[in-house]
Design a protein around this nucleic acid. Structure first.
Lengths: 231, 231
DNA sequence: GTTAATTTAAAACATGCGTTTGACATTAAT
DNA sequence: ATTAATGTCAAACGCATGTTTTAAATTAAC
């Protein structure tokens, strides 16, 4: 063998690319093997030959993006905590660590920005049963570390509340990623390209406000309790 | 005929109940006609005989709950705006109008509280294409009215931002409804039953904080009025 | 009680699915 | 050039799906 196998590389990668595009557009459940092979201009048997089975193909796509995503999340949290070992990190920074790995990954894909967002959104929305045991473990580790980090930044709000608020946050995130096209048109009224950046910026502000609800940081605030509406 | 048709009522309603339960548990797409008829102890043909087709069955279930839900949403917004015609209504109240119709509906169903939440969450997460034209129109009307109401309450934040924040809100809501069981166990540590109430309370605070991000209302307000919440 | 309409039941139908097969073509190694 | 491994293809398999059919059973009306 002189080089990397050429014969194998072409159709397999075409299949993978086609699968990712279709999964992003229609969701994992709504894509038939024949849809993939047709878009990739390959034979029906190609998926099973190259990937073993349909399930192993989706598992591959999932792990391919979820693993690096979680890894960079943790890396960013690392540098955040290393940079301010004892100081308090703004929640905004933590949320950035949670979602900005996305923008680094869109650059490495053949998929369009919007499509990749959809794909990742669909991945994050998968039920546990659809994920491999290792990926589930990765997710739990990541979630735990971020929960602790946020608990450190917002010590006054009970752990239980924080868990719920994080729950709301991921809900917003999944919805944002999978349905971002609904509102995309509004954001590119102004020139530039960074529609994604603007979107994420809005999300970070929304989520940060929600997470720190009831905590008085807002510079002013001379008076005390301000429990607003607790009926 | 002496009374209401007895012969028709029994299996048809058993089918409907079975369908709702399965749709809630596994989602509309993952439930086969045979699952429904088996749980309802009816024949396979029963669904097509009583409802015309599988699609018409899910359309019935959807419209059955989505229409009243939207209606009560609008009704509650009506009383809110009628009670304070010119004054400013707290966003918390608007969000309540947006989600509390849920608790009134759980009482009227045979489904458990958790299951009904899942069902409604799945309904709210359906793509437009899966909904009838009228239901889509209802949703748009409702969304528009709430957008305008919130715009009135938060005049300082640009309309575009509000649309995004509402987008985040419904994402949180859908995720809350469909995955509330993940965190339910935490909330009933204390006696009582109002797990739903507690959950919605947390959600309202989170969403309200997110919606009014960047707006300084927090009591302090050096100058006069101070009459913001005095109904 | 007879007749007509309505409801149930078993079986089969048509279609789409993931997967497997086995023959054929292509490529790499001796 | 021969052989062995690898990749491709059309066809078919087995199964689950939604739906239809046909006949029997049940119910209502006269």
């Amino acid at each position: 063998m002189r080089d990397i196998k050429l014969s194998e590389s072409q159709p397999k990668q075409r299949l993978l690319a086609a699968a990712e595009q279709l999964f992003a557009e229609k969701g994992f459940e709504s894509v038939a093997v024949r849809d993939v092979t047709q878009l990739a201009k390959a034979n029906v048997a190609a998926v099973n030959y190259h990937f073993g089975s349909r399930d192993r193909l989706v598992a591959l796509v999932v792990a391919r993006y979820l693993a690096p995503f979680n890894q960079e999340r943790l890396d960013r949290l690392d540098v955040l905590e290393r940079r301010a070992p004892s100081k308090v990190v703004p929640i905004e920074e933590i949320i950035h660590a949670l979602i900005r790995p996305l923008v680094g990954m869109v650059g490495k894909t053949e998929l369009s920005e919007a499509l990749f967002c959809k794909l990742l959104g669909r991945i994050l929305a998968l039920p546990e049963e659809a994920l491999s045991a290792e990926v589930v473990e990765q997710m739990k580790v990541s979630n735990n570390r971020f929960m602790r980090a946020i608990g450190k930044v917002l010590p006054t709000v009970p752990q239980e509340d924080l868990q719920w608020r994080m729950h709301f946050l991921v809900g917003s995130l999944v919805h944002l990623l999978t349905h971002q096209d609904w509102l995309r048109s509004l954001s590119n009224g102004t020139s530039g390209s960074p529609a994604l950046e603007v979107m994420l910026g809005r999300f970070v502000r929304f989520a940060a406000a929600g997470l720190r609800e009831g905590v008085e940081i807002e510079v002013s605030a001379p008076t005390g309790p301000q429990a607003l509406f607790d009926f």
